[in-house]
Amino acid sequence: SRWTEEEMETAKKGLLEHGRNWSAIARMVGSKTVSQCKNFYFNYKKRQNLDEILQQHK
């Protein structure tokens, strides 16, 4: 299923807060499964600069 802007923003916040904790990110997004969140990261990594966001994760 397609990702809305809102879901993407929430997933990015999740990456920032939780790093690669996909289940925590899935809980934040609410409408996507753990594997969908993981796939989002790998599919949108380049397009959305997700690696940069991940590097900011403490």
Rank of each mutant, 00 (worst) to 15 (best):
A24F: 02
S31A: 08
A24D: 08
A24I: 04
T33Q: 00
A24Y: 03
E17F: 08
F42M: 13
H18L: 08
Q36M: 15
A11S: 05
L15Q: 00
W3A: 04
H57T: 13
I25R: 05
G14Y: 06
Y41D: 00
E17A: 08
L54W: 04
H57F: 09
F42Y: 15
L15A: 02
V34I: 12
E7F: 04
A26F: 10
G19K: 04
F40A: 03
E52D: 05
K38C: 06
Y41A: 04
K13A: 07
G14I: 01
K46A: 11
E9I: 12
L50C: 07
K38E: 04
E52P: 07
Y44T: 06
K32N: 00
R27T: 12
K38V: 05
A11F: 13
G14V: 02
R20Q: 11
S1Y: 07
Q48W: 13
T10G: 08
L15D: 04
F40V: 02
V34P: 12
R47E: 15
L16T: 05
S35I: 11
G19L: 15
R2V: 09
R20P: 09
E7A: 12
K45G: 06
T4R: 03
K45N: 02
L16F: 07
D51A: 10
N49V: 10
V34H: 10
M28P: 00
M8D: 05
S23I: 13
E52C: 08
E9C: 07
Q48R: 07
R27V: 05
Q36G: 09
Q48I: 14
L50W: 14
L54K: 09
Q36W: 13
A11I: 15
L50R: 10
I25N: 02
Q48Y: 15
K38T: 02
E52V: 08
L54N: 08
K46W: 02
T4M: 04
Y41C: 10
L16K: 13
A11H: 12
M28R: 13
H57V: 13
L54G: 11
L54E: 07
A26V: 10
S1F: 10
E9N: 10
I53Q: 11
Q36S: 09
W22N: 00
N43V: 04
Y41T: 01
E17Y: 10
Q55P: 07
M28Y: 10
N43K: 09
R2D: 09
I25Y: 05
H18F: 08
K32W: 07
V34D: 04
G30S: 02
M8F: 03
A26W: 02
A26C: 04
A26G: 02
E5Y: 07
V29W: 13
R20E: 14
L16V: 10
M28E: 15
Q55N: 10
Q55S: 12
E6Q: 13
W3P: 11
G19V: 15
E17W: 05
K45L: 11
S23L: 14
K45Y: 04
N49A: 14
K32M: 00
T4E: 09
K13R: 13
E7I: 12
T33I: 15
L50S: 10
K32E: 01
R47H: 13
S35F: 03
K46D: 13
R20D: 14
T10M: 11
T4F: 04
Q48T: 10
R20S: 12
W3S: 13
T33M: 12
G19P: 03
Q36P: 02
E9W: 02
K46I: 07
K58D: 15
H57R: 12
G30H: 00
G30A: 07
K13E: 04
Y41H: 01
I25Q: 02
S31N: 10
G14F: 03
R2N: 15
S23D: 15
N39V: 05
W22I: 06
V29Y: 02
E9T: 14
A24S: 10
S23C: 11
K45I: 14
T4I: 05
V34E: 14
E17Q: 11
R47T: 14
N49E: 15
E17G: 05
Y44R: 07
T33H: 00
K46C: 04
Q48E: 15
E52L: 12
H18A: 02
R2P: 05
E17R: 11
M28F: 09
G19E: 00
E17S: 05
N49L: 07
E7C: 05
W3I: 09
K45C: 07
L16R: 11
K32S: 01
K46F: 01
D51P: 08
W22Q: 00
C37P: 00
Y44H: 09
W22L: 05
T4C: 02
S1A: 03
E7N: 05
N39D: 14
G30I: 15
Q36L: 13
W3E: 09
R27D: 11
H57C: 12
K12R: 15
D51Y: 02
A11P: 08
G14W: 05
Y44E: 15
K13L: 03
Q55E: 14
L50Q: 01
N39W: 14
H57Q: 12
S31Q: 07
T10R: 14
A26I: 13
H57D: 05
N39C: 04
G14A: 13
C37H: 00
N39T: 10
A11Q: 00
S31K: 10
T33D: 05
K13S: 06
E17V: 09
H18V: 07
V29T: 02
M28K: 14
L50M: 06
T33K: 06
F40T: 00
Q48G: 12
N49C: 04
G30P: 08
L50N: 08
R27M: 12
Y44L: 10
H18K: 13
S31W: 03
Q48V: 14
G30D: 00
W3D: 08
G19A: 15
A24K: 14
K32G: 00
G30V: 15
K38P: 00
A11E: 05
E6L: 07
T4V: 02
Y41K: 02
N43T: 15
L15F: 01
K58I: 02
A26E: 01
Q36H: 10
D51S: 08
Q48D: 09
L50D: 10
G14K: 07
Y41V: 10
R20Y: 02
G19H: 01
K46N: 12
T10F: 07
A24L: 10
E6M: 04
E7M: 07
Q55K: 14
R47A: 14
F40N: 01
K58N: 04
L54V: 13
T33Y: 04
K38I: 08
L54I: 12
T10P: 07
I53V: 14
R47C: 08
Y44M: 06
K38W: 00
E6H: 10
T4K: 12
G30E: 14
R47G: 04
R27E: 05
G14E: 00
L16Q: 06
H57S: 07
W3K: 14
E52Y: 06
K32V: 00
M8K: 10
S31V: 05
C37L: 14
V29N: 00
H18M: 03
E5T: 11
V29L: 08
W22K: 01
G19C: 13
V34Q: 08
L15T: 01
K46H: 05
V29D: 00
K45W: 03
R20I: 08
T33G: 04
G14D: 00
I53M: 11
F42C: 08
E9M: 04
S35L: 12
T4A: 00
E52R: 06
K45M: 06
M28I: 05
Y44V: 10
E6G: 05
E52T: 11
K38D: 00
R2Y: 14
Q55T: 08
A24E: 13
W22V: 03
N39S: 10
W3M: 14
V34S: 11
Y44P: 05
L16Y: 02
K45E: 10
K46Q: 12
V34R: 10
V34C: 07
S23P: 13
R47F: 12
